[in-house]
Amino acid sequence: MGKAFVAKLAKEGARDPEALAAWIGRKKHGASFGKKQGAEKKSGDGKKEAPSKGKTRAASKKPPPAAAQGADNSSRNGAGFTEQEEQTLTAASSQARRMDLGQLLTHRHKSGERTREDELRAEAASRELERRKTEAQQRMAPAMESIRKLTSGSKSGSFMMGTSAEGVSSQRLRRMSDEDLARNLQLARAVGEVDATAIGAMSSRDKTMLYDVMRALHREQRNRQR
């Protein structure tokens, strides 16, 4: 029974048209009409309707505040470590420097299930290995330049073709004094020792060159001692 029906009853002289409309509605539609009318009246009075299930679920999935949303990301660096973990890694660097290569590699390549602590130990070992590699390359640079100069003019060859590189040209070796020969041999040995302290400090090509130079210098030294 809408407002138009109530207005019609009022025009016809009803003292309480709304009550009369309600009575007619109950008479026609049964007791459920009153409950329905009451619910419509409440919604029309400005009170909020009960949210549907869909609305309740949507409301429960409110996004977290911007500050909380970015807190975790902002505290991590590009490598995925938090500021606190970076402090732990810095503190562990002094301990990693006292480890030998075997210990560092054990931490870096730990097999099986890893905890976060294992990942931090592996990262500390990787950083120490990289530091040693960079330091070794810097220490070897001047010596490697001298060794490369020794190889200028040397023969090139291939083991598969039945020939091998001399490392240092025979003429250059013969012109060397005993002191220069010993000094260059000592220099080559020192480079090999530095390379042994760090993985990847020297390329495979440079290692082959160093081996050829040392072999040529040793051979010349033995020939002079005969």
Rank of each mutant, 00 (worst) to 15 (best):
R205F: 14
K8D: 14
V6W: 02
Q221H: 15
A92V: 01
G13N: 13
E130A: 06
H218I: 12
R132W: 00
T106N: 10
A141I: 04
N223L: 14
G157S: 10
A188R: 00
A66Y: 03
M202I: 07
S158F: 08
A22C: 08
S169I: 05
S60T: 14
D16C: 05
R189G: 09
Q95W: 01
A216T: 00
G25L: 00
A31I: 13
E220Y: 07
L105K: 12
S60W: 09
G200W: 04
R132C: 00
F159C: 06
V194S: 09
L105Q: 11
Q171S: 14
D206C: 07
R183W: 15
V191W: 03
K149W: 01
Q69T: 14
M140T: 02
S177R: 06
T106Q: 15
S154V: 00
T197G: 11
P63H: 04
S60G: 12
G46I: 08
A182R: 12
A96K: 08
E145M: 10
G192C: 05
P142S: 10
N77W: 03
G153T: 00
A39M: 13
A165F: 01
L210Y: 02
A182I: 10
F33R: 11
A59P: 06
G70Y: 13
D212I: 00
M209Y: 08
R116F: 04
A216Q: 03
E130N: 07
T56F: 13
T115E: 04
T197V: 04
K55I: 10
A92H: 04
K36P: 01
A190W: 05
F5N: 06
E117W: 06
A59K: 10
G25M: 02
R139H: 09
E18Y: 10
E12I: 11
Y211Q: 14
M99V: 02
R226L: 12
E40S: 12
K207Y: 06
R98G: 08
A39N: 12
M1L: 08
A125H: 05
G70D: 12
S93W: 01
K48I: 05
E145W: 01
M176A: 07
E12L: 14
M214F: 02
R148V: 05
K47E: 13
Q221K: 15
A198C: 02
S152H: 06
L173V: 06
L104H: 01
